[in-house]
Design a protein around this nucleic acid. Structure first.
Lengths: 138, 138
DNA sequence: CGGAATCCTGCTAGATACTG
DNA sequence: CAGTATCTAGCAGGATTCCG
């Protein structure tokens, strides 16, 4: 419906209100704090629950459970359960999950490259804001 | 410190605990629901506050204010205020902000390409989960 | 017009404890 | 080991109001 501009250059493509909804829905999940780290970790190959947990450092077991379930739900990872004692569960990225790695790497590379600049900008901004609390000082 | 592995392939690069902190700090901001949309919108050129607000549809004035301030703070956008009546404020992406567009486009392209598959996966997952509420039904 | 300030809410995510 | 369940604090974010 309303096929105004279907695809122009990179600049014009992400503005259709309906599509934006769905897209940001996905992007929110991906951009979430833990998802990126988990996907990056699973990029190394199949891993067990506590293995992932240990290598991420700071993630709670709850958040890891939810993050992994989200990945499985989106078809980005698979969960393989071995009915042994003690139980053993392995998570692996699917092909779709693997296809997500390059964009993620591009983004993290960008972040890495601009890390220092951004830190500096923030420090400067905060400094200036401190001197100007709406033009006044008690 | 601890320069264990500085950079190997794409697979091995995002795991240093210290760096991860800083990186995910940035990624969280970028991955935030509105930031991507605002950056994408500003990619078209300088825009006024309400202009952005109107073109994003669903964003509250508060969230737009905060998002824009975040972008300015990170040096990704500039705020230019014209002391006219009524006031006029224009936001523009900086060079650094522009450099963020390609990775973002890569990610949104990925999201767009896998939108339907993911929706299907979710539907299937939710359906199966509904039939198995911890192996029981009243 | 472009915000800032205030209030109020609901989800998020951490900590803890229990199960198969 | 790999979860689930429960409780709770905190803050994200919407609605509203006022100011320059």
């Amino acid at each position: 419906m309303i096929p105004t501009h279907t695809s122009d250059t990179a600049r014009q493509q992400a503005h259709d209100p309906m599509e934006c909804r769905a897209l940001s829905d996905i992007l929110v999940r991906i951009g979430d704090k833990w998802t990126i780290l988990v996907v990056g970790t699973l990029g190394d190959g199949a891993m067990r629950f506590n293995e992932i947990k240990r290598s991420i450092n700071g993630i709670s077991q709850r958040m890891l459970t939810l993050t992994l379930r989200g990945l499985v739900r989106d078809g980005l990872a698979t969960r393989k359960q071995y009915p042994t004692i003690p139980p053993k569960v392995e998570y692996t990225l699917t092909a779709r999950g693997l296809s997500l790695l390059p964009p993620i790497v591009a983004l993290t590379d960008w972040a890495r490259q601009h890390l220092l600049e951004i830190k500096a900008s923030r420090a400067l901004f905060d400094l200036e804001a401190e001197s100007n609390p709406t033009t006044e000082a008690p």
